[in-house]
Nucleic acid binder design. Structure first.
Lengths: 190, 190
DNA sequence: GTCTATAAATAGATAGAC
DNA sequence: GTCTATCTATTTATAGAC
């Protein structure tokens, strides 16, 4: 837990986070992480016993990022509908990366589904946090099926991501995201 | 093009097709394909110069499967709405594999997006065929924005797939697919 | 804590006998 | 067309000096 050590550890995690996103977990080697950080491969094993442990640290790092983003959305407004709209901005604000590499959470979950059930389960924790947050917003809007709405919204965003990435179609992403915002605005009890 | 050769070639392609789906392209080795087919690794290079060529053959094989499925949907009814409903059955009919491994086309495209732009583009050809077919159905329903509807439906199915696979949530897949069928039934010009 | 050297396993790919 | 043996490069991981 020394200061210097934590610094190097965090640099490894952040480089791995980016590489796992842009190249995929299985296609990222220790050499890649070493090249990006300048830290020799052998040193990695002082902080992580296995590559899986690096992945778990990356998953934790992404979870922190998600929680931070949700806090920013919470700070936007007292109105849950406004907070939901703020959340959807994540697609628009990252559209260039989304079209090129997909969703960091969705593509990792899809990759690990073919690899290791336990690692996939860990990677889905960030989705669970978002799902819980979305559910809270829909509940505040008065919906009794708030969890279903949360899943619907997550699925909608993942669908937009997968198809805009497959077809490299940014206009589709922009149109679909705008339509999703309309949908959010229509979420009202009659 | 000899009969025996084509037989072995097709066995390699079909084993690779299944392995690329359940383990991913990068995580499937020649040894895996050899173990599944009983054909020695060295023989692979008589039919395919590189692993990429096997992938291209798998992509072609999947495209044939898609075209065959769309022909079955065409045969269902003269009513384009009925044909669209028949198409959505693909999720329900494969729900066990979908929850475990995702969509063969979507997960491959997502994997190759991080690997090789050219291979990804090839893998998306099957999506393009489906998109064109869906567009045709919506056009017959009288929609001028038929291509947008086609993309919306593809995205919706991919979103259902990614999230039901992430959460291993078959009830969500079933509910979402039922709601998509309602949506299809509501696709009418006013 | 940091780094070099290297082990052990596996990958894709090749050469050549049959 | 089929198969065995092998090459070369790369991978995760370890040992041990500093």
């Amino acid at each position: 837990m020394g200061a210097k050590g934590e610094n190097n550890r965090q640099r490894i995690v952040e480089a791995a986070d980016q590489l796992f996103y842009t190249r995929g977990y299985n296609q990222t080697s220790f050499r890649d992480i070493s090249d990006m950080t300048g830290i020799p491969r052998g040193n990695f094993y002082y902080y992580f016993k296995t590559k899986d442990e690096i992945l778990n640290a990356v998953i934790d790092n992404r979870l922190l990022g998600v929680q931070d983003y949700l806090r920013q959305c919470d700070a936007v407004s007292d109105n849950p509908r406004e907070r939901l709209l703020a959340f959807t901005d994540i697609l628009e604000n990252n559209k260039s990366n989304v079209v090129e590499f997909g969703c960091p959470l969705g593509s990792l979950s899809s990759e690990l589904a073919k690899d290791d059930a336990q690692l996939q389960q860990a990677s889905v924790r960030a989705f669970e946090v978002i799902r819980q947050w979305l559910k809270q917003q829909f509940a505040e809007l008065g919906f009794s099926n708030a969890d279903d709405r949360a899943m619907d919204m997550l699925a909608r965003m993942q669908g937009i991501t997968v198809m805009s990435c497959a077809f490299k179609d940014m206009p589709f992403l922009e149109r679909s995201n705008a339509e999703m915002k309309e949908w959010v605005n229509q979420q009202t009890l009659n």
